[in-house]
Design a protein around this nucleic acid. Structure first.
Length: 557
DNA sequence: GCCGTTTTCGGCCCGACTGTTTTCAGTCG
């Protein structure tokens, strides 16, 4: 396997991102700051290595990269940094960016802390908050103190656990590298294999008859920075990226049992105890009279009672299309044509284009006039897949929608979302949600709880009531497959199914790459024991169209 | 800093909530 020389696209994107943040601290125009963030996103999603793009002279063809940023990227590729970045890091301590990352702390607060109190690091900030120095400063009060302390607490609680969207690709690439370097079987284990929302560390099982030789080979791998620990049954390594991973060594005849144990969770493994010595996982389960239980279903409970249902649960191949994605018409990064092509490449039959409505100004949401114009483009592009003209319509704070009923009824598919006012009291929040569920023009409620994993708690909804009404109106509830959302989460999705609700799984893709997140949504749906018939985007295009038409929209223009 | 069936210069990123004040600045989705 040949490895591309030079820094990764992600490294370049992160540098542009940091530079943008530093520019913001220095008081630069918000538009200039934004330009760097936009360029960073484009670079992050490039199909080819940045160095190759530069060599072919196509840097300026990257969206958001003009003369200035192209020159910066050239310099970065040659020197590993660029002079503008060096200048700014000389002016501001890099650690100010850590403070800027605290929720509720923006540029103005960071610079005031730095200039008036000399605070440049998180520990200094914590000391100032604890000692009361913050609230003693003019312009700061008890609330900022509380914001800072709770933000620091969140950061501390966060440390160590990665979102599944990072952990799984990382675990897979480590397993692939080990497979390349070692003769025996290699398998990803641990919570990443089980698709838990967050992952503490990467676990891998490696088969070997010569542990010492295997350890030596692993230690010599380029991806491995250092062996941190060597224990009885394996070793702990620190990767070049700084992430640590446990590698368990096992003789071939015990590979299955070791993989079950290393995959966990403890409650699941306990039900199988004592684990029979077996060369593969299926044999472990067979010895207990069970079929092989897929890792994402290993939760230590239901899987031992409901296993006959496993073959009927939804799988990736059941998905015929998606009903919630974005394009450059709002905050997406790709054209409708590009999104349609990506969907076609995945074998999808249909794709709902649902850009934001105007209420979400920051996402440059569409007003009625632009919605009409977009509809024409959608009609022109439709071909590689069946495109549905839709909207992700904003549910405003007062519960009203951004578009009137006639506008919504003319759309093929309507996805309603609560992005604002998620901290409202339960009663108000439920009034909004129930009102939207009862609107016959709304087909889908997107990311119903509004949570962002480890960043924002869900809204305070009364789920039994919400699910009862959704079951009555037939409105589909989304499992949003974005690994930062996974919303509904699996236990809520299971409760929704018990209440008789219909579901849909969507990536909420803002870029062609976004569709690859589908596997996370599938895992959540399976953890909720969902079958294809529960999920509207597994249905045939004919059945889906009939359902949409029946619901009051989809009648066409 | 980028970009152009509004424009090669002048837009681009709006509106509400919160906290700290006392008429508004800062943050965020």
């Amino acid at each position: 396997m040949e490895r591309a020389a030079g820094p990764s696209n992600a490294d370049a994107a992160n540098l542009l991102e940091r530079y943008g943040a530093l520019l913001e601290l220095s008081g630069e125009s918000p538009f200039r700051v934004r330009a760097y963030h936009r360029a960073a996103e484009s670079v992050r999603h490039l199909d080819a290595p940045l160095a190759d793009v530069a060599r072919s002279g196509a840097l300026r063809e990257i969206p958001g990269v003009g003369e200035g940023i192209a020159a910066i990227l050239q310099e970065y590729l040659q020197r590993g940094t660029f002079s503008g970045y060096d200048d700014l890091t000389a002016r501001f301590p890099h650690s100010l960016l850590d403070i800027l990352a605290l929720p509720g702390v923006g540029v103005k607060t960071v610079m005031k802390l730095y200039n008036e109190l000399g605070i440049a690091t998180l520990p200094e900030l914590e000391a100032a908050a604890v000692s009361g120095a913050l609230r003693a400063t003019k312009g700061f009060g008890a609330k900022l103190e509380a914001t800072v302390l709770s933000g620091l607490e969140t950061l501390a609680g966060r440390s160590g656990r990665m979102p599944i969207g990072e952990a799984l690709p990382l675990g897979r690439s480590l397993a692939a590298a080990l497979r390349q370097a070692l003769p025996g079987r290699v398998a990803l284990a641990g919570s990443a294999r089980r698709f838990t929302e967050t992952v503490g560390d990467i676990d891998i099982v490696v088969e070997t008859t010569d542990p010492d030789a295997t350890v030596a080979r692993i230690a010599a791998m380029p991806i491995v920075g250092a062996v941190v620990d060597r224990f009885e049954s394996g070793l702990r390594v620190r990767l070049q990226s700084g992430i640590e991973a446990d590698i368990f060594l096992t003789p071939p005849q015990r590979f299955g049992a070791t993989l079950v144990r290393a995959t966990g969770p403890a409650a699941h493994v306990q039900r199988l105890a004592p684990l029979p010595e077996a060369a593969d996982e299926a044999a472990v389960y067979a010895a207990r009279g069970l079929p092989w239980i897929p890792p994402e279903l290993r939760l230590g409970g239901e899987e031992f009672d409901r296993y006959p249902e496993i073959p009927s649960l939804v799988v990736m191949d059941d998905i015929r299309g998606e009903l919630h994605c974005h394009s450059t018409w709002s905050d997406g990064a790709a054209s409708i044509a590009d999104m349609a092509a990506a969907a076609a490449l995945r074998g999808y039959a249909f794709l709902g284009i649902t850009d934001h409505s105007h209420g979400l100004g920051i996402a440059s949401g569409l007003d009625v006039a632009r919605l009409r114009a977009q509809r024409a483009e959608i009609a022109a592009v439709s071909g590689p897949v069946d495109l549905l003209a839709g909207s992700e319509v904003e549910v405003r704070r007062d519960g009203s929608l951004d578009f009137d009923d006639a506008t919504l009824a003319a759309l093929d598919v309507v996805v309603a979302s609560l992005h604002v006012g998620l901290r409202q009291p339960r009663e108000q929040l439920m009034d909004r949600l129930l009102g939207v569920l009862r609107n016959p023009n709304v087909d889908i409620i997107a990311h119903p709880s509004g949570r962002l994993i480890e960043r924002r708690p869900p809204g305070d909804f009364d789920w039994p009531t919400a699910f009862a009404v959704a079951a009555e109106t037939g409105t589909a509830l989304e499992i949003n497959a974005d690994p930062m959302r996974l919303d509904l989460k699996h236990d809520l999705a299971a409760a929704a199914l018990r209440a008789g609700c219909t579901l849909t799984i969507n990536c909420d893709a803002h870029h062609p790459d976004g569709f690859t997140n589908m596997e996370y949504g599938i895992a959540v749906a399976r953890q909720a024991w969902a079958r294809p018939e529960h999920i509207i985007n597994t249905w045939s295009p004919e059945r889906l169209h009939a359902w949409l038409t029946e619901r009051g929209s989809g009648a066409g223009p």
